[in-house]
Design a protein around this nucleic acid. Structure first.
Length: 644
RNA sequence: GGGUCGAUAGCUCAGUCGGUUAGAGCAGCGGAUUUUUAAUCCGUUGGUCCUGGGUUCGAGUCCCAGUCGACCCA
């Protein structure tokens, strides 16, 4: 019977939902047991081979048993009353041990999943520490003075709830470490204090949720502790915690079992905590500027607001094909038409594109729109917003007792928000980077001739290969440019504007963090790239001085794009022409385009005030402020290919 | 798409030139211990060495293919 109990570790699937993976799944032969068991409810089938990773404390075998009502072996096993001889692995043994303790508790009349907790007099660990702050001798090591603690609260009994994180037994005494949402504190259990209750500690396991009562005291090493009078299990954990020292390091496991990761990896939890505060900080800033938070549709019949490939779905009752939104932009601007001068939305958007350290299929976007403002106004607002949220985050975390997280993130930061952000027109940023690569503007002058068509395997100009070979020798930077992809991308361009944009992406963007530095050169400087080509900005207003460009900026921090903003196009005729261009591109086979939105044109015809709009990738913003290298680290549950 | 490295107990990891019955720490279980904090000490359970082929008297180890992961390149 061991045959189905296969190795469960790292059965992981591709991070990327690749085409090959999908076709592989479809190509599974009909005889594959995995496919059969997934389709057929037939109870006679063996347990599905792949579905062995335990769920809710039950093995795959038990799960399949559970699908059969009245299945005695499954229930008996789940209750832990089958003999140890039926154990199939070390994991089973660990579960069994805990089930037996659970049964002992029930036999004693204790509910291992208590439902009668009264936490009105509960004290948080942080509150406890605050109460004894005056007795703190060494803040770094959290050492306390015993006499001062005693005089501050000699007989007061504290009620604390949390999860048990560590245990050290000494026969007639025991130390525990308890964690609640605010921090951790040591518990000291002594037989002569607890009496008979001490014996029941044998049924307590690491990871259990407990409530304790006891007085505060200081051990001889100076650690503030609760001397227990009582300890009661509130919720029995059927599984323990990962290695107490190394924690959980397998990346796949961490993202799949995020609930364990957050317990075992304090940094992972700190990032999610920071994220909540950052979003609060964004609201705090915008509310202070008189913006109204609104909600707009995430389901629609058209794709608009960004050039991106959408997720398609279907409404049954209306028999209507629908798309999940790629951006809220067009609805927020309809609200401008409707008289709301300052609106914002923080919401989930969905783009059916690749997954990377900077992309998750669903992500959070902040967009705000301000009537009677220009993109220049928004650049100032962006700087204030970033500094406000950063300070807000630090202040809140310090108040919550997580100052060390703030200090750690600040120390590791490779950029600064303290100095004015750089502002560079796109063309200038390319020219500057070329200069640093000893290439001057000759590259910019030959963009069209550089194009290399992947299909025909031919260059637009016969000498192009030679130019590149020569340029590569000019400097290390010139050599590190991704020339082949640049030339491929140029071949797909239909206008000078698109070529400039491509040139910027390959020649300037990868070097932004090097080219724009703080006054002392020690940090990278956030940089606004401004004045984008109109061809790549279908919703932005043209520059009065140069109609081939638009009043638009993107903000880059450490070379990563965080913001996109522009003065809004409110001329319905111009907008109509831009939509038509998008439709043209779609007909040529480009999947990342917008649809023609007739109702939006109609709205513009009713008069949209001059306005500027702003978008911020909230996930990337959190990455920047907390120094996380992957977007998966700032999302509580990033998308994973499901386990089989 | 290509390259490099990796997958061994619930967790974190060793495993020599291919050679006895695959090891350690943590967690678990049994015992000792009333001030530890990665507690300590004694004993102990737990493994389809990612999957499938192959080479071999013999494979965790070598070869081939595949799956998945990390990093780098395009």
């Amino acid at each position: 019977m061991r045959s189905h109990k296969r190795r469960r570790k790292r059965p992981g699937r591709a991070r990327r939902v690749s085409r090959t993976a999908r076709t592989r799944a479809r190509r599974l032969p009909a005889t594959c047991p995995r496919v059969e068991s997934a389709r057929a409810p037939a109870p006679a089938l063996p347990a599905p081979r792949g579905r062995q990773r335990s769920l809710f404390g039950l093995s795959g075998r038990q799960l399949s048993d559970r699908r059969r009502p009245g299945s005695v072996p499954g229930r008996a096993r789940a209750l832990g009353v089958l003999p140890a001889a039926s154990m199939e692995s070390g994991e089973e043994a660990l579960l069994l041990a805990r089930r037996q303790k659970l049964e002992r508790m029930r036999q004693r009349g204790q509910n291992p999943f208590a439902n009668d907790l009264d936490a009105r007099d509960r004290t948080l660990v942080a509150e406890l520490r605050a109460k004894f702050a005056k007795a703190l001798l060494d803040p770094a090591e959290l050492r306390y003075d015993a006499e001062r603690v005693a005089s501050l609260a000699a007989e007061e009994r504290f009620h604390v709830c949390g999860r048990l994180m560590a245990r050290r037994g000494f026969g007639k005494a025991s130390f525990f470490r308890l964690r609640d949402r605010s921090g951790e504190i040591q518990l000291f259990a002594k037989q002569d204090v607890m009496g008979e209750a001490f014996a029941a500690l044998e049924d307590v396991d690491l990871a259990d949720h407990v409530e304790v009562r006891g007085r505060a005291m200081v051990t001889k090493t100076g650690e503030l502790s609760l001397e227990l009078a009582e300890l009661r299990v509130l919720s029995k954990a059927m599984r323990g915690l990962p290695d107490k020292w190394h924690g959980m390091t397998d990346a796949d496991l961490r993202y799949r079992r995020r609930y364990v990761d957050f317990v075992a990896t304090p940094e992972a939890a700190a990032v999610i905590r920071a994220r909540g505060i950052i979003v609060q900080g964004l609201r705090d800033f915008l509310d202070g500027e008189g913006f109204l938070e609104v909600e707009t549709p995430t389901l629609g019949t058209l794709v608009g607001g960004a050039t991106a490939r959408p997720f398609a779905t279907h409404h049954n009752a209306l028999d209507l094909p629908l798309f999940l939104r790629v951006a809220p932009e067009l609805y927020l601007k309809r609200l401008l038409v409707g008289g709301f001068e300052r609106v914002y939305e923080i919401g989930r958007c969905y783009r059916n594109e690749g997954i990377s350290t900077r992309h998750n299929p669903e992500f959070t976007l902040l967009e705000f729109y301000q009537a009677y403002a220009t993109y220049d106004v928004l650049m100032h607002a962006t700087e204030r917003l970033f500094r406000h949220v950063d300070a807000f985050l630090s202040e809140r975390l310090e108040r919550l007792g997580f100052a060390t997280d703030v200090r750690r993130w600040h120390a590791a930061r490779t950029f600064t928000l303290a100095e004015p952000f750089a502002r560079v027109p796109m063309r200038e940023s390319v020219a500057r980077s070329l200069e640093r690569a000893s290439l001057t503007t000759e590259v910019l002058d030959r963009l069209e001739a550089l194009a290399f068509d992947q299909k025909t395997k031919s260059a637009a100009h016969a000498d192009a290969d030679g130019w590149v070979a020569l340029w590569r020798t000019r400097s290390p930077r010139a050599n590190s440019v991704d020339w082949s992809n640049l030339r491929r991308a140029l071949a797909g361009c239909g206008s000078a504007g698109e070529r400039l944009f491509v040139a910027y992406e390959y020649l300037a963007e990868p070097f932004l963090a090097e080219d724009y530095r703080s006054a002392d050169g020690s940090k990278s400087l956030p940089v606004f790239i401004i004045d984008y080509p109109a061809e790549v900005s279908p919703l932005a207003r043209r520059k009065d001085a140069d109609p081939t460009l638009v009043d638009r900026f993107e903000l880059f921090i450490d070379g990563r794009e965080l913001c996109n903003a522009f003065s809004e196009l409110n001329d319905p005729a111009d907008q109509e022409a831009r939509f038509l261009h998008q439709v043209e591109l779609k007909q040529k086979g480009n999947a990342e385009t917008m649809d023609y939105d007739a109702d939006y044109i109609l709205a513009l015809e009713h008069g949209m005030p001059p306005a500027a709009g702003f978008g911020l990738g909230v996930d990337r913003f959190v990455m920047a402020l907390t120094g996380q290298p992957s977007i998966r680290d700032v999302i509580a549950f990033p998308l994973m290919r499901p386990e089989e």
